[in-house]
Design a protein around this nucleic acid. Sequence first.
DNA 1: AAGTGGTCTAGACCACTTT
DNA 2: AAGTGGTCTAGACCACTTT
Lengths: 262, 262
Amino acid sequence: MLSRMTRPESSGGQQPASRRIAEVLRSAIQSGELRPGDRLPSERVLADQYGAARNTAREAVRLLAEEGLVVAQHGRGVFVREARRLFRFGSDRYARKNRETGLTPFRLEARRQGKSARIDVVSIAREMPPRDIAERLDVAPDDLSVVHRENHYFADDEPVQVVSTYLRWEEAEGTLLMEAKSGPDGIYGRLEELGHAMTSIRDEIFARMPTPHETAVLGLPPGVPVLEVLHTSLDQDGRPFEVSRFVHRSDLTGLTYELPVT
Amino acid sequence: MLSRMTRPESSGGQQPASRRIAEVLRSAIQSGELRPGDRLPSERVLADQYGAARNTAREAVRLLAEEGLVVAQHGRGVFVREARRLFRFGSDRYARKNRETGLTPFRLEARRQGKSARIDVVSIAREMPPRDIAERLDVAPDDLSVVHRENHYFADDEPVQVVSTYLRWEEAEGTLLMEAKSGPDGIYGRLEELGHAMTSIRDEIFARMPTPHETAVLGLPPGVPVLEVLHTSLDQDGRPFEVSRFVHRSDLTGLTYELPVT
DNA sequence: AAGTGGTCTAGACCACTTT
DNA sequence: AAGTGGTCTAGACCACTTT
């Protein structure tokens, strides 16, 4: 193998060849020359065009995929990603008027977009809470102190978010809070009967790359981070009675908070 | 070259060798066997251990870097990333009591952490607004209708967030809003004098991978998304008078919103 | 000087999709 | 059958850091 050819003449500048190729493609995408849905030249064609090895062209494409600009489809090609941010979760999703089954805001948003909505109750189980949940729900971290309800949300059968809701075991035991169908107005209806009127909420928001498990469950392409919301519901006494972890795919989801300034 | 050795015996399972190596390392990190700050075995050592080519070991490490679990340092090695989420931007950052210079919440948070705070005013210029800004500020999108103030925020000289603030040119022209030092209570003080009392706010939140420019400005390692907040300030008449785009590095930043439920 | 990651070559076989 | 991305080999030279 001719390894003195490592730096071919064509890599004139300071930049590595893979970055230069990526830059040309990036400009083409940003200028609109390559439009959402368009196919990029194949890795072999790019390699030819730039007098590089296929792996070098491939590295260029990988850089773009990491930025979330393109998505590869095995056997088909690499495509410019469609910029579609479909779901907007507003702070009004907690409003009392949107309370029936706790699910309405999602269904409403799906309908607004002409999509079908589906919510799967994946599991309902007594568990030991993760540390961050235990702190916020104010329960023992090393005890079977919570009920964990896991739901998956789909729009047109495409997964959009995964929600883990945690409730106090002592309150949920033997009630409809342990059932998939939790009755009128959903879990918040039952929690209100237990004396917890949702009076204020606290949402803590982070972004991070998905775990391999989340990548699988949400069907995430590379280069798409997740939005994680740690939600705490506080009652009339300012005490937490429900904590949920929302994991959204960020290419489909945005959050909106509207609030008065004091 | 012996290309029939492409699939060596050691890749026993269904999984590609690079993924298997990544899984072993991931488990070691999650179990705490490899702790934050620890160095991974070098790519050459991993390749030896698993009877693979160096590029295969390298691919395994790349998968972990993409998940944000490790960071490579040229010439030094690959290290398990420290999980430090330092900055919490709460919805109370808009509260009137935190108004002086508009910067106090950031300075407070930095002091709380024993870090120095620095805010650079990078530019103040009359510009054509981006489409999303024009819509929210309710100004002409294809006109020099706004003033754009760009600030960079540093903690211990490490960049934490980039903020672009947009104001109406017709209101800012010839006022302290065009100056780096915008006077008592910062730009919100001047805007209040112009008849805009901040009465409510709307924050729209997205996550995405950074652009190459943001990667450079924020000094982002691979595998770290950004949190983007599109902030709109509304006055006593419910009219927008200021729109800002916050770009936070998500490994250092979290957002918190506390609000009453109606 | 030795070790590390960064980039690259020039192939190969595989899984998948399209013609 | 032809084309595409996915993975891999066995090298090489480079830039950077540590010994």
